[in-house]
Amino acid sequence: MNTILLSVIILGGIGFLGVLILYFASKKFEVYEDSRIIQIQNILPAANCGACGFPGCSGFAAATVKSSSLDGLHCPVGGNAVMTRIAETLGQNVSQVMQQIAVVRCNGSCENRRRINKYDGEKTCFIASGLYGGETPCSFGCLGYGDCTKVCSFDAIRMNDETRLPEIDEEKCTACGKCIKACPKLLIELRKQGPKSRRIYVSCVNKDKPAVAMKACKVSCISCKKCEKVCSFEAIIIENNLAYIDDNKCRLCRKCVSECPNYAIKELNFPIKKEKVENI
């Protein structure tokens, strides 16, 4: 009997002591956390991609709570819907940001751009670009080792084995901008998604003189200025031997697309039928 009593007392005592220590420790080391951070974290997409510029979604949540306004804070993955909900939670206003999508500004597939060298180093764009301009005569274009595909958290960008160019899955792309940072050739650009996802852009970044660019790639921009002339909205600027379409001014009239002699201007998601009529 005595033994049982003793063990109960000892064990109970130890238990009680533990409770006391834990209680005081939790009081002493308590970290105050704004409950809204958790709330906002629940709204966020939990992709932890870092596209907002903060380490993960919790970092972004903390930043939104801390700052007095939501200017400059944007979750590209969640888009306007999520930002509106965050603004409601915090009782603040948020301006609508135009939904964007990534485009790859190079069309130098194996067919369009001949390979003149064979690269035998480590096959990542980061390493290859440090020493060489690539395997083709165009030192501006895509290297084809897919650094952009490796950083994408959403599986939205993939290498096409035939063309050796990356392709963007519009359904999955969240415009987080990671691939843009990964590309050493600065080929990828975020552009306005456009109505019905229709977009027009110059699919080339070659800044060589026209004759050199022409030789390097079948679909290079040769800065012939035809597109600039045909554009009624002054949306096309030519600088450093390269045309660029300003997506804020472009009205998607598609005149430049058919005007380009080197097929360097690309249109996406336009109905094909109409084009056939034009061709006839």
């Binding site: 390979r115 060298n117 064979k118 690269y119 035998d120 480590e122």
Partner: peptide, 8 residues
Amino acid sequence: TKLIISPS
């Protein structure tokens, strides 16, 4: 034949 390029 294409010349091979690679880092040292």
